[in-house]
Design a protein around this nucleic acid. Structure first.
Lengths: 106, 106
DNA sequence: TCAGCATTTGCAATTATAGCCAAATCGCCA
DNA sequence: TGGCGATTTGGCTATAATTGCAAATGCTGA
């Protein structure tokens, strides 16, 4: 794998890695319903505000979400609605595995 | 986020995490072209065999790939062709970011 | 200007990952 | 059976990620 190829995969990996955390995946799925402010998200997640803020900053840094300030609040929203396709793939892997396990159990 | 919800996201995260590594993303994309044995993949990646073997084992453990032994060789293949949809989403985030950067530069 | 909420940033400790080398397995064939 | 090539596993070290607390920043309304 040459330098150029590796760089290409690393760019994609940054985005995938951003989704590879339970809290961030939850945030993304919550944002797929619509804009939310940090305080709302923090309450839903149930972790420290600073932790949630950092997760959101990471998602933003790779371009998955965008933010909008309104007064002292910050509203985050999805920048790409494609997350659904993304999830579909994950779901189908999960389903395939579950079906296989079921078959083995019989 | 209650226990049950968290467990749901963790199951999905295991799959996403498996893709969140340059070498593994490369392996998956290479396997999307067809079955390959460990020795071929090792050569393409250019890392230690043991390293590649561990990456493949991880991909297998979450159900993304499957293996088939033939003599002393092991052939890996994709278990879910959906990786393409997965990539499409990643690509569109990349593209959106690139376009935005371009617009800012003008 | 000051107090007060919302959010981000700096810091330090804990935990998880990745990589290589060496050693163990496994199947094949002389 | 013994050796050989292919692959996996164990062990160890180095690096990266995650988290909460405390402090800093920003905005708003009195």
């Amino acid at each position: 794998m040459d330098e150029r190829t590796r760089a290409k995969y690393e760019a994609r990996v940054r985005i995938i890695k951003a989704m590879a955390h339970p809290t961030r995946l939850f945030l993304v799925s919550e944002l797929s319903r619509g804009e939310r402010c940090v305080c709302e998200l923090t309450q839903m997640v149930g972790a420290d505000v600073s932790t949630v803020s950092k997760h959101l900053a990471l998602l933003k840094s790779v371009g998955i979400v965008q933010d909008r300030k309104e007064g002292s609040q910050v509203f985050y929203s999805l920048r790409c609605p494609c997350i659904l396709e993304f999830s579909d793939c994950v779901e189908s892997v999960l389903r395939a595995t579950a079906e296989e396990q079921l078959a083995l159990a019989e």
